[in-house]
């Protein structure tokens, strides 16, 4: 499979910090895949994401995005290919209204106003925010602001979408809607998605999961392999899903639940069956 991003021996150290935030990290991202990156707080996930977009001036290692090696000379070209969504919905909303915010990236690229108007409109429609085009950010929910951020990215048509804990400040429903939207955009726009997350459902959407700890890549696996770890998921920096918490509680009472990963519905089914057997 073709690689859209190649990272080789990447290291980064903030200022005079003793410990490197990233320590000799190497991995590839395949074109069109959904890659999840998990790890504890402070393990270096955001540092890694920013490095990919040339937002941090790493000194060791190389990052190649779509055939372009990241350097001060290529950084703006690389940013054409990457759209990033950050954790806090408020701190990335630049425009005064939804429309203005979606237009922000286009204005930076000096797109003419005639071209901007249809592109802004289409992007807002794509994320289902057409009824809110004139709204100010203070009248939107966190989930709606993240949708607007996605529209801003759709408008500039990058090939890679990086989500840095983009759903972590949303309520469960907002989180669910956001993931659905990302899945839809990924299909429509043929995006490669890199999602950094603590959310088990978001990680479950991925084709592949990378586990990062203390600035180092410690594991690479499929969701099924990772979720088979059960309670040890917490050690990887994932929030234990409800079903896993339930299993732990059952074990404590001497009831032996199945060990493989189960969805809510499967768990419910199993519970019904074992309850009616007794």
């Amino acid at each position: 499979m073709e690689n859209i991003i190649e990272v080789k021996h990447l290291s980064y150290r903030y200022g005079k910090e003793q410990r490197p935030a990233l320590n000799d990290v190497s991995f590839d991202v395949h074109r069109g895949e959904w890659l999840a990156i998990v790890g504890h707080n402070g393990s270096g996930k955001s540092t890694l994401a920013k490095s990919l977009d040339g937002l941090l001036p790493f000194t060791e290692g190389t990052v190649t995005v779509d055939g372009l090696e990241l350097s001060p000379a290529t950084v703006w070209q690389v940013r054409e290919k990457i759209g990033m969504i950050f954790q806090n919905p408020d701190n990335q909303f630049v425009g005064a209204t939804v429309e203005d915010d979606v237009a922000f990236g286009l204005e930076n690229r000096q797109v003419t106003r005639e071209d901007m108007i249809p592109r802004v409109k289409a992007a807002i429609e794509e994320v289902g925010m057409h009824d809110f085009a004139q709204r100010e950010p203070s009248s939107l929910s966190g989930g709606q602001k993240q949708r607007v951020a996605l529209a801003g990215i759709v408008a500039i048509t990058p090939s890679i979408l990086i989500l840095d804990e983009a759903t972590s400040m949303l309520d469960p429903l907002g989180r669910h809607d956001m993931l659905e939207l990302v899945s839809k955009l990924r299909r429509d726009q043929k995006l490669t998605v890199i999602s950094i997350t603590h959310d088990i459902d978001e990680a479950a959407n991925a084709d592949r999961i990378l586990v990062i700890d203390d600035g180092q890549l410690v594991q690479e696996a499929s969701p099924a392999e990772i979720f088979a770890l059960g309670e040890k998921l917490v050690d990887l920096g994932l929030d234990l899903p409800f079903t896993a918490k339930l299993k732990a509680a059952l074990k404590k009472r001497g009831i032996e639940p199945p060990t493989n990963y189960q969805t809510m519905a499967e768990m419910e089914e199993w519970l019904w069956q074992s309850l009616s057997n007794t």
Partner: peptide, 12 residues
Amino acid sequence: DLSTAMEARGYQ
């Protein structure tokens, strides 16, 4: 955060 987001969105 805002300055990082602006830069990521191509603001020079």
